[in-house]
Design a protein around this nucleic acid. Structure first.
Lengths: 345, 345
DNA sequence: TAAATTTGCGAAAACGCTTTCGCAATTTCG
DNA sequence: CGAAATTGCGAAAGCGTTTTCGCAAATTTA
């Protein structure tokens, strides 16, 4: 049974804490304390307030709260390329973690443009975000976004060059190791490595991991590209070149799923069977590729969700006052086995 | 020359409007008016205030502003699948448009989960967003997120089922027409259509557009799948099936770039040349696919950026008080010609 | 030149919340 | 049983803006 609208009821004003307090017959202060779980409120009073709040479907005004508390309850997510398939899973995982803790996320995509990035940083600070998360799509170190920022900052995937910052990034050495160990474990002896751009850290680190494992078993690569790109085209052409040179391989380790896909193409053109004759491993575990190939592609997953979640938790703690750790935190990669290395069908 | 820090200078408190006013020797009210371009302030006073603000590197506190004005200067972007390559360009374009107007964007990804979606809507309203944009990745109509919401809402890509809502979505009929006209213009006569799921509106609309153009020229498709998926696998298998049935075609129109890619594979396996023997057109203009194929894929672009920008502008106007239009606004698609339909090399 | 208008500015009241502090009533302690 | 501590609550002071309204001075109008 609703009270009839009075002429003054023009705007359906949302209930304020004052309304709740009045309805519960307590003061503003008590209502606030009751709803915020502060003590110095009796249980009966508290539930009376809670009931009133529910009845009025009261929701706290975050701007008032923020103004009063001096924090906004928001964080900024600054990414350099959202098309990229790296930033996105990280962002979503982070958003998830924050979301659970009642923090909302401002998203900014600087698109690799330094000017735009600076602009967004100012915008985020102007918004009084409580923390900033910087996400990139390469594991090469980047220029920090600034020193002595008034909020905690964490770098994800792309680490900061400044060791005093906290960065969280995948361990590509481990990734390289995992892939190599898997190939050796499935009996492969003659492994080739089709790399991404050799100047990029991701490619270099993987090469290190591969080298480590092979050295431990006293062997080495039968082939490795000295140049590299991330593209499918490069995978196809480099693989073709290798095969045409007569290099005999029984496994190809590719620095990305796209490269692997190109390699698979080149193999098929030559009627080389996968995985019977040659095993192929990719990197990134990008579903679109990995599930589209024939056979499905074994790949190294970089645990991006884990990165995002971890970063969010760190920031959350930092907002709570716990000082941020320093340095680079490495997160292990993960091997996902599919048909391109084993016939398990 | 900096003043030495006094012991009280513990926290580097940011400047408030009051600091600015004091520095400029005016009242709070005048300072506010000066910085907000209100009149009733002399030019000299205004610039005095502006100078002071600059000197103190003052930035307005958005929470205080929001509290006072009753609006937050934020909008919510609710998407159902961020992995999808549709939502993302829309979101970025929208963010761009808003960003220019000093509005920040809260991003939520409900992942197609209705419960999560309701949760996010509450969260956004609790945050007092000034507007909500709902983005999907299918052109099938969806349940509206709610009637009588306290903020304007616009649906992008995926339209609302309620005609009183404003929805902005690509015109796939036009898309189908464009593709068909292009094929006819390049001299193709025997066109096949490899569809996505026939129950989905995008596929159905395209079929309509294709049919229209063919009917106008008195012809019809030589082949059309009656079932459909969006996957590359489906493109490959349906194309193979068609060819194995002996259907003679000189053009294949595919409902997605992935389907087209599968079709290209099937064609190559049979040594059918593209575009000499058969022309292939895709949909979506997804760079990863379109540039990776051999030859590069002619495709229909759905102008997602345009969708996003338009939606943002509409919402912006709505926040400003202009009531939102109703109904579905169709945005034309765009043909992007590449090597799979013409030999322009 | 007196009256009417406009201009420039400031005091003060919101906006909705949190938090400090003080007071009374109650409980615990010696 | 009196002193000390604890508990439950409310008044009021912020938090940093915007905006309304009133007042004096300067300008325009008749």
């Amino acid at each position: 049974m609703k009270a009839p609208l009075t002429p003054a009821d023009q705007k359906p004003k949302v209930a304020t804490l004052e309304d709740v307090a009045r309805a519960a017959g307590v003061s503003l202060a008590t209502a606030s304390k009751a709803l915020n779980g502060r003590d110095r409120v009796s249980d009966t009073t508290r539930s009376r307030v809670e009931d009133a709040a529910r009845a009025l479907s009261y929701v706290r005004n975050p701007m008032a709260k923020g103004l009063s508390e001096g924090r906004s309850g928001t964080v900024g997510l600054l990414t350099s390329d959202l098309e990229g398939r790296f930033s996105l899973p990280i962002l979503m995982a982070a958003e998830d973690s924050f979301g659970a803790g009642q923090i909302s996320v401002f998203l900014c995509d600087a698109r690799g443009d330094a000017i735009r990035e600076r602009h967004y940083i100012s915008a985020l600070l102007a918004r009084r975000v409580d923390a900033i998360m910087v996400v990139g799509s390469k594991t090469d170190h980047r220029q920090p976004i600034g020193r002595d920022l008034p909020v905690p900052v964490v770098y994800v995937y792309t680490p900061s060059r400044d060791p005093r910052d906290l960065s969280i990034t995948p361990d590509n050495v481990v990734g390289g190791r995992l892939a190599t160990e898997h190939l050796l474990a499935t009996g492969r002896k003659r492994i080739a490595h089709l790399t991404g751009p050799r100047t990029e850290r991701a490619a270099a680190d993987r090469a290190v991991g591969i080298g480590q494992v092979l050295a431990e078993t006293g062997t080495s690569l039968v082939y490795e590209t000295s140049y590299g790109e991330w593209s499918e085209r490069w995978g196809r052409s480099s693989c073709a070149m290798m095969l045409d040179q007569g290099v005999a391989v029984d496994a190809i380790l590719c620095d990305s799923d796209q490269i692997a896909r190109g390699a698979l193409d080149a193999l098929r053109e030559r009627s080389i069977r996968v995985p019977e004759d040659v095993a192929v491993v990719g990197f990134d575990n990008w579903d679109v590729i990995v599930e589209g190939t024939h056979p499905a592609l074994t790949s190294i997953d970089m645990n991006l969700e884990l990165l995002g979640r971890s970063a969010a938790e760190k920031l959350f703690a930092a907002i709570g006052g716990k000082p941020l750790a320093q340095g680079i935190e490495l997160v292990d990669c993960r091997l996902v086995v599919r048909g391109s290395t084993t016939q398990t069908i």
